[in-house]
Amino acid sequence: MLEGKFDEASLLKKVIDAMKDSVKLCNFNCTENGISVQAIDDSRVLLISLLIEAGSFEDYRCDRNIVLGLEMESLNKIIKNGNASDMLTLVAEDSPDALNLIFEDKRRDRIAEYSLKLMDIDQDFLKIEDMKFDAVVNMPSAEFAKICRDMKTLSESLQIIITKDSVKFNSEGDFGSGSVVIKSFTDLEKTEESVRITLEKPINLTFGAKYLNDIIKSTPLASQVTIKLCDKQPALFEYQLPSGYLRFYLAPKFED
């Protein structure tokens, strides 16, 4: 039996908004520690790893491991019916054929209850070795989102060049080119505005702008984004949840 109560439906709303355009079908693996998802987009370029730990819930219990095979578009339709400020409880029996979602309005005692049919989703699970990264950038997620949107107007490829104290986003297209350079700095009042760069080795990697613009749909989830890069390896873009994370592993583009 799974019973997980969010204080606000907004958290799951933001998570679904961040994932639904990249992956259509997901297995939500529910254990006593929380809910985890691993899914790969249709082009097999972007791997998404979600962990919503029990600490993200007001109340959480899952006394037997349950797999919820969910069609993201249908889940999104139901989530949109609830108010972001409603409490949201997820309920499922052991070996369930449906997921129940209960929205409770804190004030007017209005209760909306939905049942979402589950699907049998056969998904391969990729093992992601913990790896040492050559560079780690912590920066405001809104700033990263703007850079990805702006650079995409110029080209379908975005180059990321990191030296000891700056990150350069570079885009070269048919009608022109552009670049944005950000430097390390600490904002003592508003720490979420800070930019922190940790560099072991210089980085020069290119990624698909389309995928970066899928990744930045996570921006409402967290004020900062952590970007971890290693030469010739997928980049990791991580958005922290109250307890857990939403991670995107993006395969790079190589010079022909």
């Binding site: 790969i40 791997l47 990729l126 997928p234 010079e255």
Partner: peptide, 14 residues
């Protein structure tokens, strides 16, 4: 010109 590679090139099936 740059060529996109897929994620399976880096991570193996469990």
């Amino acid at each position: 010109e740059t060529r996109q590679v897929i994620i399976d090139k880096f991570y193996s099936d469990e």
